[in-house]
């Protein structure tokens, strides 16, 4: 009798301890999840701050110096053909610096709304590129904070880079449609489709991880007639 009683008491004791451990484990898992999110956020913020700094240094320091060199050279020997070749090279270098730094961080990002930035981005691409981009937005924008907007900008420009680099498309349509509860990003091109070895490439992974970070989902459909990528991102409550 005494043994049975003892066993029952010990069993209860063990069950109690077990439940305690279980709760503790769940709490820790939850905290870990929060920590992970915070670390990702910090990582992204640090990375973006660094990009901004490099972009500005490139643009202002190197870009400024190139412009100064040109300004100084122009007055040396007017009409000298060798010098005008050098001036041409300087113009090319300035243009390269500009596009590299803008890819790192679009200028005046924090002061400009996403629609205008992207409209400008596609205007410039259409003025020089081989792909004709049609950019559409509809609905009420400015529903995201600036960090999230930057994330969306990166998703869209990564989608665009993929089209430019790999699709062999002649035409593409990029849309941002602001619904009541979410933003839909749609990118369509008339290219040759995503090659199987690229379908898990870095570009798509980057897009995927940014969409994940925003708590959104993404759908990719691709065949030899073109590629359609649709991402949906909920607004934060």
């Amino acid at each position: 009798m005494g043994v049975v009683f003892e066993t029952v008491v010990i069993s209860f004791g063990i069950l109690y301890r077990y439940n305690l451990f279980k709760r503790e484990k769940e709490r820790l898992a939850f905290e870990l999840e929060i920590n992970k999110t915070q670390t990702t956020l910090q990582l992204i913020a640090t990375q973006e701050a660094e990009r901004k700094r490099i972009a500005e240094d490139l643009h202002d320091a190197l870009g400024g110096n190139l412009a100064s060199i040109k300004m100084n050279i122009q007055n040396m020997a007017p009409g000298n053909t060798q010098l005008s070749t050098v001036v041409g090279l300087l113009d090319k270098a300035s243009e390269d610096v500009r596009s590299i730094s803008h890819n790192l961080m679009p200028p005046e990002f924090s002061e400009t709304n996403l629609k205008d930035l992207l409209a400008n981005y596609y205007n410039q691409l259409n003025n020089r590129g081989s792909v004709r981009f049609n950019f559409h937005t509809s609905g009420i924008d400015r529903r995201f904070n600036k960090i999230d907007e930057l994330m969306i900008y990166r998703i869209v420009s990564e989608l665009t880079n993929n089209i430019l680099k790999h699709s062999h498309a002649t035409e593409a349509t990029i849309q941002l449609i602001y619904y009541e509860e979410y933003l839909e990003i749609m990118a369509e091109d008339n290219g040759v489709g995503i090659a199987p070895q690229i379908s898990d490439g870095i570009g798509l992974k980057n897009i995927q991880s940014r969409v994940n970070y925003l708590g959104g989902k993404i759908n990719i459909h691709s065949n030899s007639f073109g590629t359609t990528i649709i991402a949906m991102v909920n607004y934060k409550k």
């Binding site: 412009a67 100064s68 500009r98 679009p106 200028p107 005046e108 400009t112 930035l117």
Partner: peptide, 27 residues
């Protein structure tokens, strides 16, 4: 400016600038 961005140019225009030159301008 070294910026050739439309929205930067527009901002300058909106704030009353009379002209806008890129720094790598010709003489």
């Amino acid at each position: 400016s070294t910026y050739n961005e439309e929205h930067v140019v527009e901002k300058a225009k909106a704030q009353g600038a009379n002209g806008y030159l890129l720094k790598n301008v010709n003489k």
